[in-house]
């Protein structure tokens, strides 16, 4: 009896063990899948108006580091930052700011980055002018006062990097025929995404918005070259004198000599649309 009991126990417990392990693996697998899909779902949906604090690493790296402690929030002297509440579309508990509500004042000592214990805000950012929280884009061409030829200039004036991150680019006002238009133009290499312009825009709904880089910027195809840049680099055209055959352009067939004549309707003679 005393010898049998441990034997019997062993057998049962081995079978139990295998059964339990199988159940455990399946259960844990299901749970892991569920958790994984929650993570994947939440990860990709950082809304365009939620801007991460200065120094925030790329979103994927950020979510491997940020522990949602809010130390950055606590140390921001302007109450710019807040932690996303549950049910908001930002990953719950992670820090963000909405520029139209309170923009980042670009503190010289960057207290938010200094406070972060995890490296989610990168300490290698020591000059706030190098921050890349996002990039301002003039989205409201139809409402921006400057774009209509008025002189509002407010977004330009409030920019901490005035004349670097944002300039007023002059063009002719064809509506009046004699005035200039000063278009607020953001330069992505200098704009920090602090959102001072978005915050200050005088319109009911801002015409200039800080957007995450992934939304704000276009990108050339890898093979694409600006001809004039290449020409400048080389000192002469890359294609002239290379024996490249210039095929006739479709639609516009200029007379073999001289400038095309204007037709009576205002078009060019010989132009076949």
């Amino acid at each position: 009896m005393a010898e049998k009991t441990p034997n019997k126990k062993n057998k049962v417990s081995r079978r139990d063990f295998l059964g339990d392990a199988a159940k455990g693996v399946c259960g844990a697998g299901l749970f892991g899948l569920a958790l994984g899909s929650v993570v994947a779902e939440a990860e990709g949906k950082l809304p365009a108006d939620a801007i991460r604090p200065p120094g925030a690493t790329a979103e994927a790296d950020f979510l491997s580091a940020c522990v949602r402690c809010g130390l950055c929030v606590r140390d921001c002297p302007y109450d710019t930052l807040s932690l996303a509440d549950m049910g908001s579309s930002v990953v719950s508990g992670t820090p963000l700011f909405v520029a139209r509500t309170i923009p980042c004042e670009m503190c010289d000592d960057i207290p938010c980055v200094v406070a972060c214990p995890t490296g989610a805000l990168d300490k290698s950012l020591t000059n706030i002018d190098d921050a890349k929280m996002g990039i301002a884009v003039l989205v409201g061409h139809e409402t921006c006062l400057n774009f209509q030829g008025l002189r509002c200039d407010v977004c330009y004036r409030v920019c901490p990097l005035i004349e670097e991150a944002i300039t007023l680019e002059r063009s002719a006002n064809e509506r009046t025929g004699k005035h200039a238009i000063f278009i607020p133009t953001v330069h992505s290499d200098k704009c920090t995404g602090c959102g001072k312009c978005e915050h200050a825009c005088v319109l009911e709904k801002t015409a200039i918005r800080v957007l995450p880089e992934r939304i704000a910027l276009g990108e050339l195809g890898a093979h694409y070259r600006w001809g004039w840049v290449e020409k400048g680099n080389k000192g002469e055209s890359l294609i002239e004198g290379q024996g490249i055959i210039d095929l006739p352009d479709r639609g516009y067939n200029p007379e073999p000599s001289g400038f095309p004549e204007k037709s009576a309707t205002g078009g060019y003679k010989g132009f076949k649309p």
Binding site: G24, V25, G27, A28, G29, F31, G32, L35, G36, V38, V39, A40, A42, E43, A60, L63, S64, A65, C66, V67, R68, V91, S92, G93
Partner: peptide, 22 residues
């Protein structure tokens, strides 16, 4: 213990601090 294991595996696979999402 299994949920804990699954949390670590999910963290490694998704590259996020997985349990902090929930």
């Amino acid at each position: 213990l299994w949920t804990m294991g699954a949390v670590f595996v999910t963290s490694a696979l998704t590259g996020t601090i997985a349990w902090e999402f929930v």
